[in-house]
Each structure stands twice: as structure tokens, then as C-alpha cells.
Amino acid sequence: MISETVKEEKKLKFGLFLGCNISFNRPDVEQAMRKIFPALGVEIDDLVGQSCCPTWGTVPSIDIVGWCAVAARNLALGEEKGIDLMTACNSCYGSLNEARHKMLKNPEIMSKVNEILAKIGKKYEGKAKCRHVAWVLYKDVGLEKIKESIKYSLDGITVAVQPGCHFLWPSEVYPDKEKDPFNPKVLRELCEALGAEAPYYTKLIDCCGMGALRSTDPEKSFILVREKLECIKEEIDADLIVTTCSSCLIQLDDAQEKLRKEGKINFSIPVLHYVQLLAICMGFDPQQVAGICVTPRDEVIKMILEGGKR
């Protein structure tokens, strides 16, 4: 029985799809993934030559075949090796899976894409998909193994979870689905596995206002992030915000500081990607796995390392 389990674990291998924001803005998230997955028995392939997913404001805004072609080149990097991709960025997760869904649904798109890919000696058959790291942790690694792997627990710590839009919708295109996409549980359970309280709050599934909304109209974007932060503060007074999306991470961390400077909020809640929080709990160096932020994290990290030692 045990040897079977070990054999099963050895099979876990994914192409690590980084995306732009994690590569350049938040490489501590990349480092966190590079630490936790091998330690949890998940092998990582670098997917050398990967590019932007492509993100929403680029090729997807021009035409569907172009969007699918760029996505297909990235997906093919995994397919060639017989592995799926995994990402910690919801935008990449959304763009790659929506593109794959379009190609699978519409053979005409798929064949046009492959005509383009043929020019660079590649093809995509629709086999490789992009998984979300949170789902890999939840389903493939499993909560029990996560519980066993941690050196520090989050006893007494309350977290506000932020799954982010593309973790949930449109559920039709994703390889893994919440039972109720408007009442998500996966991230809450992942946080609870670390010993934290992860209560519901009214604006749990609300948009953080990042992405195109922020680049088009920062003022309007800040309405959403402010409402979200105030709700988190008032309803559950969280010690920490935990997200599964690198865009939400940047927005909640970065915009929070701007709101403080403008005198619009008077509190500070540190923000971490779930893979960073897990890496800290597993005992990896916080400077490496959570060293980049605007809203200070030192206190909560100290609280975890000093208060929750097992």
C-alpha cells in the first residue's frame, strides 16, 4: 500500500507556467513554487521558451485564432513532454484554458492554429491543459500531505481568502471546478489545512479591480479594492489576506498602500499568495519566498514563525 502511494507520487510532474507578473514583478511567488513542489513530491519542468499566456489586453483583444495560436504554443511545450502545465496566475489560467476550450469546441479554430504552428514546426492536439497550483495542491497533493509537511501552523490566525475571478469562472472551461463557483471552498480548506480560520465574508468572491479595469480607470478600480478591504477589516478583522492569483496579490498589496497614503483607509493587512504562505509554513526562508511586498508582512510572518511552531 505504501509503495503504491510512493509510486503514485513519483508520477506527479507539471510544466511550471510562470506568466509575466510572477516572472518580473513577484518572483518570490516563483521561488515559493520552486521550493514547495519538489518538497511535496511534485516534479517541475521549466517549460523552457514559454511566453506570455497571452493576456487579455493583447492578442485576445485582436482575434480568436491569434489568441489560440499563442496559447497553443505554450500548451504544446507541455504536450510535447506529456505533461500538463500549472500556474499560480489566474489570468494565465483563464487565458490558456479559454483558448483550449475554444480549440476543442471548434475544429476550424484548431486547424487554423495548427496551420500557424506548422510554420515553427510545432503542433497542438488539445491534450495538455493548464492546471491551477491551488487545485494541484488540493487534489493531487492533498490536504493530508500538506498538513504533514508543515513545520509552522497558523493556529489562532484568521485569513481572508481571495480566490480571484479566473479561479472560478467560466467554470465550463476549467479542468477543475468548485461545487458551487459562487461559493468557493477550495482556498478556504487549503488555509484551514494550515491551521488558520478562513471564514466567509460578504465580498469574498468580489473582484479586486485589477487588470484592465485598473489600467483603464484607476479611480474606479480603487472603489472595488477599497470596498473589499473594508469588508475584510469590518467583518472578520483578518490578520492576513491569502489569494491564489498573482494579479489579486499585486492589487490588494499595492493599492492598499495607495489608499493608506490618500487617507482613505487607516489599517494594514498583509497579503500573500497561497504558495508563499505554504512555503513559510514549510519552513522556507521568508526572504526568498515572500520577500517582495508593499504592505509590510514582517509582523504576520513573525507571528507564524514564533507563535505556531509545532
Binding site: C20, S23, F24, P27, D28, Q31, C52
Partner: peptide, 25 residues
């Protein structure tokens, strides 16, 4: 090959990663 791109690599160096991600970069 990246819609969001930065020439500065201080962040990557700071967290102990190679300056270039394994991408088109």
C-alpha cells in the same frame, strides 16, 4: 514575449533566482 516586461532584475536576484526566467526572455 511578455506583455508585462521589466528590464530591471533586482527582484529576481533578491529572492535568489536567476536573472532571466526560462521564457522567451
Amino acid at each position: 514575449g511578455h506583455a508585462v516586461y521589466m528590464t530591471g532584475r533586482e527582484a529576481r536576484k533578491k529572492v535568489g533566482l536567476p536573472e532571466n526566467p526560462p521564457s522567451t526572455d
